[in-house]
Design a protein around this nucleic acid. Structure first.
Lengths: 160, 160
DNA sequence: TATTGTTATACTCTATAACTATA
DNA sequence: TATAGTTATAGAGTATAACAATA
């Protein structure tokens, strides 16, 4: 069963990433790559990317949201939110209403078209999720989610 | 204990991401952002980024590696590996030796300086890892790693 | 024909500084 | 003074096509 030993020059056909496997960052990057690539294909029919999809969902779930709040919720810098909101607005999926009591800000609201696209995309993403998580039992999923949440919350445990 | 109810206009100060929280992609992106930002600061003193650090570790652990194998191990396209290897070579951390039996390819090998920097950076990354995972018990860590590995392996369960 | 490494290129994501108009 | 949104810009990460040398 075991392959013949090749003593002189070690085979580089079987690459070891044992060192990197010890770190959450490496494992998460690899897993996230799979999710990102699949989500990319899933959202393509709706002409949405992960960022525009995330923004749309947040605006649908939180009508009246301001851009600064959206940036904070998405963990993205404010200038980068502008182009995302621009894109959604130009496609008629959301509107920039004037914010009450603050003439500097906008109240982001979904249009009926935006709500419809959001709902349709959401069901596609749910199928994508179930497909990728198919082999993982409920307890492992819960533990994984808890671990990810603990890392996210522990951002005050960062360096500096 | 409960704050006074504000019926007319719902407070948008408390943003709900409940919909997105149901998806592994969102939770992983948020957690990965924390890890990426911290790792960025941790590697900065060594003048390494996540990609160059990962490549260096893989080359140290797999001397004689070819670039195509490195690209595969890093889940990065071959053209993007060229600049990473360029950077490590120009800094004297690795060398591009001729590959035996194939004059097209290179055998990537670490220099003593590369091995030393790799070891030093590794201990810093170990501290970073333990800091970010501090609040997570062993069983949760194991389950999280198992879940991430299952997603990575299940890349054949992708769309198309 | 297929593969290795390469060049060129483009698109996305991310990050910072500086501006305007309001607060 | 500080904040909301904006502009401009630059750096990273990622992806594809096409090429020369070699298998």
């Amino acid at each position: 069963m075991t392959p013949p030993a090749r003593m002189p020059s070690r085979a580089v056909t079987d690459i070891s990433d044992a060192t990197l496997q010890r770190f959450a960052g490496y494992r998460m990057k690899r897993a996230f790559n799979v999710i990102r690539d699949d989500l990319h294909l899933v959202l393509k029919p709706f002409d949405l990317r992960m960022l525009t999809y995330t923004a749309l969902v947040l605006i649908v779930d939180n009508p009246g949201l301001r851009q600064a709040q959206l940036a904070d919720a998405m963990d993205v810098e404010r200038p980068n939110v502008v182009v995302i909101v621009d894109e959604l607005e130009q496609r008629g999926l959301i509107v920039r209403d004037p914010a009450p009591n603050d003439r500097r800000a906008y109240a982001l609201n979904p249009t009926p078209a935006g709500e419809h696209l959001c709902a349709t995309a959401l069901t596609a993403v749910e199928r994508h999720e179930e497909r990728l998580m198919a082999g993982i039992d409920a307890e492992t999923r819960a533990a994984m989610f808890a671990g990810l949440e603990a890392i996210r919350r522990g951002s005050d445990r960062r360096v500096k």
